[in-house]
Structure formats: structure tokens, C-alpha cells
Simulated assay, not measured.
Amino acid sequence: MGFRKVAIKESAAESIAGISWYLESEGLLATAEKFADDAYDFLSKLGDNRKGYRPCRDPERDLLGYKCIPYRKKYTIVFIELDTEIIVCEFILSKRIYW
């Protein structure tokens, strides 16, 4: 079983940090830490070579060659899938993707 390298762009990392910061500001310190840990664990599992992912349903992102996968039904992870690498570009609310 091989794994591809998973690279996370700064914009995706900032989105995860922003969500975590919001949870902390609401007084949910343990929840904020658990959310960030779980999100990064999920992103690291995207590198499994045995899996392939479908293109985004959003026409703009599909034209750019992005792949999308839902995370906890509320968020969408947008990434580029290469043979040797996964590049995570966006971590956004699913509501913000229009199709």
C-alpha cells in the first residue's frame, strides 16, 4: 500500500485555523483542538494510492481540474490529484459552492 505526498496550501490551513479559532472564541477549547486534529488526519488519509476521486460538481472548479470531497457533510475539501501528490487548495463551507 503506497501513499502519495499530501501538500496543504496556506489558504486551506488558514481556513482550518479560522474555524478552530472560532470554536475557541465560543469557549470550546477541546472541541477546537479536536476539530483541527481530525481535519489534518482526514487530509493525510487522502494520499492513499488505492483511491481515486471524482471531479468537483461545481463547473468552475471542474474546468480547473480540481477534485472535491465532503468533510463532515458541512465542509468541502478542494484539491488537485496527481500521481505522486495531492495538493489541498481549499477547505470551505459546502454552502459556498454553487452549482
Score class of each variant (00 low, 15 high):
71 Y>G: 10
26 E>C: 13
36 A>N: 06
72 R>K: 14
32 A>Q: 04
39 A>L: 07
65 G>R: 06
22 Y>G: 10
17 A>M: 03
73 K>T: 15
34 K>S: 12
30 A>W: 04
18 G>Q: 09
76 T>P: 00
16 I>D: 03
60 E>R: 12
98 Y>A: 04
94 S>M: 11
66 Y>P: 08
54 R>S: 11
66 Y>F: 15
93 L>C: 08
53 Y>G: 01
72 R>Q: 13
71 Y>C: 07
12 A>G: 04
72 R>C: 02
45 K>Q: 11
79 F>T: 02
8 I>E: 05
54 R>L: 10
45 K>R: 12
86 I>Y: 03
94 S>H: 10
18 G>W: 04
17 A>P: 09
16 I>R: 01
31 T>H: 00
9 K>A: 14
52 G>L: 05
64 L>K: 13
69 I>Y: 08
56 C>M: 04
48 D>N: 12
73 K>M: 11
67 K>D: 03
55 P>D: 07
83 D>L: 11
48 D>K: 04
32 A>K: 09
12 A>E: 00
86 I>C: 06
60 E>C: 04
27 G>I: 07
55 P>M: 11
35 F>V: 06
67 K>R: 14
32 A>V: 10
86 I>L: 09
4 R>K: 15
87 I>D: 13
55 P>H: 10
7 A>Q: 08
76 T>D: 08
54 R>A: 11
22 Y>K: 14
22 Y>E: 12
28 L>I: 01
54 R>Q: 11
24 E>P: 08
32 A>H: 05
54 R>K: 12
91 F>Q: 10
71 Y>L: 09
71 Y>H: 07
35 F>K: 01
56 C>Q: 01
80 I>T: 07
